[in-house]
């Protein structure tokens, strides 16, 4: 894994630090689209299922890129995982987002879950349950824009835009044109340890 690219002691801890610019994000998505084509042998039988909200936009962008690069229209859908979370008691109410199955369903397909940030893995765990209730795919893979570590479950991504070592206290914020007016990934909050306070 690449070395950390910042030094926490030298910057304002609360100021958001940009880790992916709009251009970076475009390049990263290009790469993931190419990887998907490569790994799935041309996108045959692939269905991209975005996890709302930003995973849905990412899935759309990836599908568009695959179409541009290879002239292939992969299946596209969305899967809301709200009702599959395992921590209802600690999670506040939120209105449900849309679940959309592509025509032809999921049976026998290669489903690629798409999300913006991979953190504990609980969202993906919930998404796997949700997928299982919708149909029986041939296989399920995972694509994320950012992997920030701190997994609590044995889950790893098949496609990663950027590995981003973080402290648990930090927040990774993904902005997307479709919803936020611009594309960027920023990180906010203090790093895990400052100089001299390591374990």
């Amino acid at each position: 894994m690449p070395a950390q690219s910042h030094s926490a002691s030298q910057i304002d801890l609360q100021a958001p630090k940009t880790v992916l610019s709009a251009e970076d994000m475009a390049r990263v998505l290009d790469r993931i689209a190419h990887q998907i084509l490569e790994k799935t042998r041309g996108g045959d039988g692939v269905v991209l299922m975005g996890i709302p909200t930003r995973g849905t936009f990412l899935a759309q962008r990836l599908a568009d890129r695959v179409a541009t690069f290879a002239g292939v229209r992969v299946g596209l859908g969305a899967i809301d995982i709200t009702m599959y979370r395992d921590d209802l008691r600690s999670q506040a109410f939120r209105p449900l987002a849309e679940t959309r199955e592509p025509a032809g369903g999921l049976d026998g397909k290669l489903v690629i879950l798409v999300d913006d940030v991979l953190f504990s893995g609980r969202t993906v765990r919930a998404a796997l349950d949700a997928i299982a209730d919708l149909g029986r795919p041939r296989a399920v893979q995972l694509a994320v824009l950012v992997d920030r570590g701190h997994r609590e479950l044995p889950i790893r991504a098949d496609y990663v835009g950027k590995n981003l070592p973080t402290s648990v206290q930090q927040q990774v914020k993904v902005r997307m044109l479709e919803r936020d007016g611009s594309d960027a990934v920023t990180i906010v909050g203090p790093a895990e340890f400052e100089e001299g306070h390591g374990e």
Binding site: L96, E98, D133
Partner: peptide
Amino acid sequence: DTAARLDAAMTGREVKKLPT
């Protein structure tokens, strides 16, 4: 809105059950 989503989610499903 939530009821509408749930309604959509449940229609046509084989397993009419969510683990919530």
